[in-house]
Design a protein around this nucleic acid. Structure first.
Lengths: 232, 232
DNA sequence: CAAAAAGCGGAGCGACTCTTCCGGATAGTG
DNA sequence: CACTATCCGGAAGAGTCGCTCCGCTTTTTG
């Protein structure tokens, strides 16, 4: 589903391959620094190339963004899988939190996705893989008695989103601030506190939450093929 | 500072006054529903008026947005002042949280401001009034022993921002979800939990946080006065 | 060392935004 | 009821962004 470089039927020409890499790294940098709203002209220029070259390698701006974001989201999933191998259930949970938030500190585009400001479309795919992992992390911690019984798997995702908000605001000058508020939430997750007033979201609701509502990554809405002449 | 309707030197003509109200309510509705990015054409049309009429009443789109947002932010300040009159320090604190978040549930534009996605410019003004109130709320609660000693005034603002993130994502179908996560944070704010790893932000840092970095409400960057002829 | 294939770049189109301008409609006045 | 200050509406200027098209350059091939 990810627009991974189409398996090169014929190997790319040398310069083309080089330019492709230039584009990818330029895009990654700009998305991370300035968010998902940078223009493709900026990306191309930042790579020292022309706009047309960008479109030779990627069908649309969304394709670059989706591919890059997908890659990063995969990394988050990976750190979740790794957390499952940690024996101490509480340390595993905390470690996962920290990994998931740490990647966002340097990546504004990623934060925009977690905050639901922008939509890349493929989150549900990642979410599918994630829910199993997180559910297991929660189950283990609860069984060990280190996590309050009324915590749910969806709470973990929501807390990560809250950390995104903190980081979005502080990343520029106090990038570690999220640690303070994660600690605060973790304190609230320990057993023994007062009951939580509402039930957690269901997995389905949570998926809707990060998938619905937001503006698609550029409305684009390419209705008419621009030119009347469809010569090509 | 707020672009309150310039004290009408001469009373507005009847239709003008009516249209002004139409514009304001239309803008408020659209900002609340669709966020701060709605076009001014949409606003005018939603009010049943022409674009030009909008500019007769407001100097720019930013002016409408700022004025409206400012009004809402004033309401938040007011609920803070009211909280100071509650005798139970914990109830006062919780009440303030609830008031501050509740207004955001129906107002997407306001959430965008709290999340630092968009900048209206006048937050620092509100922040100035707020910091005194919140500091007092915190001091009272700590003196009564119901709030952990290492909590700071800036923590309150940050928690509100976290609730903005939750609400931004859930407002469309489970608008009360923030209550669960507020409860979780409140549990973490009770005394007795493990120390928080980092110091809180200073007031100055917090002000920078919600003031810096974000994209101004439309770059606009009106460099040249459009037409060369400066007849008017 | 050609010829052909592949790739490059940027002018340019459509769609959208904010804002201005001004002819024509409207409300208040004598 | 006319007359004028006021106001309305929408066309149009200027800017931005996504994307396409096609003449020109570079790489590969034979």
């Amino acid at each position: 589903m990810t627009a991974q470089a189409h398996p090169p039927a014929r190997p790319l020409r040398k310069d083309a391959a080089r330019n492709r890499e230039l584009l990818i790294t330029a895009a990654r940098e700009l998305f991370a620094q300035r968010g998902l709203d940078v223009s493709l002209e900026d990306i191309a220029q930042h790579a020292g190339l022309g706009v047309g070259t960008g479109y030779r390698h990627f069908a649309s701006k969304n394709e670059i963004a989706s591919a890059l974001l997908g890659q990063t989201l995969d990394a988050v999933v990976a750190s979740g899988e790794q957390a499952l191998t940690v024996e101490d259930p509480w340390r595993a949970l905390v470690g996962f939190f920290e990994a998931a938030v740490a990647v966002q500190v340097g990546d504004r585009g990623l934060r925009e996705v977690f905050l639901g400001v922008q939509d890349t479309g493929q989150i549900e795919y990642v979410h599918g893989r994630m829910t199993v992992i997180v559910t297991e992390l929660v189950r283990r911690a609860q069984r060990a008695g280190v996590l309050r019984k009324d915590a749910a798997a969806t709470d973990i995702g929501m807390i990560i989103t809250m950390m995104s908000a903190v980081t979005e605001i502080t990343a520029d000058f106090a990038p570690d601030t999220w640690r303070r508020y994660l600690a605060l939430c973790l304190a609230g997750l320990k057993p023994g506190a007062a009951r939580l007033p509402l039930p957690a979201l269901t997995e389905e609701q949570f998926r809707d939450a990060i998938d619905h509502h937001k503006k698609a990554l550029r409305p684009t809405a390419k209705p008419a093929p621009a030119r009347a002449k469809s010569s090509r």
